[in-house]
Every structure is written in C-alpha cells, then in structure tokens.
Amino acid sequence: MELAYIPSPSRGVIHLGPIPLRAYAFCIIIGVAVAVWLGSKRWVARGGAKHTVGDIAVWAVPFGLVGGRLYHVITDHQLYFDPGQNPWNAFKIWEGGLGIWGAIALGAVGAWIGCRRRGVPLPAYADAIAPGIALAQACGRWGNWFNQELYGKATTLPWGLHIHKVNPDGTVTDGIFQPTFLYESIWCVGVAFLVLWADRRYKLGHGRAFALYVAAYTVGRAWIEYLRIDEAHHILGLRLNDWTSIVVFIGAVAYLVIVGKKRPGREAPDSIDPDARPLLAEAEAEIETGTETESEAEVETGSEAAAATEAEPEAGSADGQASQERRPTS
C-alpha cells in the first residue's frame, strides 16, 4: 500500500442539466486565454496594437485544434479505424487526443492567414506568442489528469499518480503510475520562463524566440515520452513522438543559428503592426512637441535673464551718478 500519491478525479465531466461541462475543454480554454493575454502584453510592448494578437488567434486557435486532432487520429489510427472500432469517435475531441505537433503546424497556417489579413509579419507574431503557447500547454495537460490518460510507467514514488478506470475493452486499470502530465506541465512552465528571460536578455526577433520555445519543449518531450506507456507506434525502438522531437529540435536549432547570423536583433516597432503606427506617430509627436516647448521656454528664460543682467549695470550707473550729484563738494 502506497503511503502517498496524487489522486485522480473520479470524473472529468459535470452535467448542468442536459449540458455536459468537460474539464478537458475548460483546460484548453484556460490555456488559450492565458496565451492570448500574455501574447497581447508582449505584442503591445514591442510596438503593436492592443487587439492584434486576439484577432489573429481567431484564426490560429481553430486551425490548431483541427491540426492537433488530425495528428492524433493519423498517428493513432488503430484506435478509430481498426476492426471493431467506431470511426465516429475520431470526432470526439472532448475525450482527449490532441497532438501538439499537428496543433502547432496547422495553427501556424491559421496564424499566417490572420497575419496576412492584418499586415503583420508572422515571425514577429510567433515571437510574441511563444511563451504563452508554452503556458497554454501547461494548462492543457491537466485535461489529461481529469481524463486519466497519458500516464507513465508504474512507480512507488510518493508523487505517483493513482489511476483507477474502466478501459473501453472492459478491463480495469488500477495502480500508481508516473504522472507524466504533471512533468510536462511543469516543464512547459519552465520553457515559458526560459523564453521570457532569453528574449529580454538577448532581444530575440525574427522568429528566434519561437524557435527557442520549440527547441526547449522537444527536449523535455523526449524524456517524458520515454516514461509513457500508452499505445504508440515505434520506429527503431523509439516512439514516433521521440523521432518527431528529434527532427523538430534539429530544425529549431538550425533556425536559431542561421537567422541569428543573418538577422540579429529584433524588428523595429514601426515594422510590426500597421494598426499601431498612428499611435506610435502620435506618441512621437507628443514627445517632439514637449521637447520643442521645453527648449523654447529655456530660450525665453535665458533671454529674460540676459536682459535683466544688462539692465542692472545701467541702473547701477544711474544710481551712482545721482549719488555723486547729491554729495557735497569739499
């Protein structure tokens, strides 16, 4: 008997009358809200307009959800299309099953469409939203906890995850397992802070902050995949997601190095967001006007002081002459 463990929720859905409220969906919604909030703050700080990130997210999020589900269904097709399986279950996204690789890939397509419509560069948008995506993943992994899925190998660690559920084939899983959802959630929070720090320290631009997020995430995903025991395709002894992590990591690092040499630094604020340019121009005008007014005031004040200085000797001379006239002669 284990002395300590992390309990799993007895259920992941609450019914509000006929309406099911699913924890998995709430975790995703919370993650999207966090990503848009943090991305907007970073975008505005770089010189962009306030609502640009949210407007582009309207395109990126649906594309990302579709891409994530497609990746899962394609790579785990046996769960839906093998004999005895129900193909319609492929549409039950609320039961879990989103592949981050497909979500990022197709989400990038949606973001590209949104960026084209707003006239902003996709790399700059990706840099602004990168740490928010990592935090969104951290939130989304708690949906796996509610669904009691994607756990790791059996363990005796005090932070092991207690799983007790009835599987689709009627068997029961009961035991203490590695809480891989928690490992990945913590790792994603660390990745978000890493990107925030590196971006502030090195002024990453032109997509490099996003590439750093991708590279850092894949490192953690590789060792977390090693712990997982859910069904997966293997190639040369490694799970498919391990190979994907390796390929994506190499691509992200190559992008960091190449773009860092060709386009160091960060985009200029006036090249990021056309909607923010009137605001920037207004701010610059206010600064210039304030500077001119201050300079003019300084000139006027200096002129008055000079005039007063010139007047003092004259007044002094007049007073001296009057004193001489009043002085008695000897």
Rank of each mutant, 00 (worst) to 15 (best):
L98T: 01
D174N: 15
E149F: 09
S10R: 10
R228P: 03
V13W: 08
E312A: 12
N89G: 02
G220E: 00
G114E: 00
A90D: 02
R263K: 13
I100S: 04
R208L: 08
A232M: 12
A134D: 00
V66H: 09
I258C: 14
G132C: 12
G265Y: 06
G84R: 15
I229F: 09
K50R: 12
V120E: 07
A49S: 14
E325H: 14
Y125Q: 05
G31Y: 04
T155W: 02
L256D: 09
R221P: 02
V13G: 07
G99F: 06
F63P: 01
I104C: 09
A136E: 05
L65M: 10
W59E: 03
P83R: 08
A33P: 07
P7K: 07
L70T: 03
A252S: 13
C139T: 07
T75G: 04
G84E: 13
V248T: 13
E282L: 14
K50Q: 09
F63T: 06
L79I: 10
Q78E: 12
T329P: 05
W142S: 03
R42H: 14
S40C: 14
T173M: 11
I29H: 09
F63Q: 00
W94Q: 11
R327A: 15
H77F: 15
P328D: 14
Q178E: 11
A33E: 04
G114F: 00
E294P: 06
R42F: 08
H206N: 12
K41D: 10
Y125A: 01
W59C: 04
G265L: 10
E286W: 04
R208D: 04
A232D: 11
D230P: 02
C27P: 02
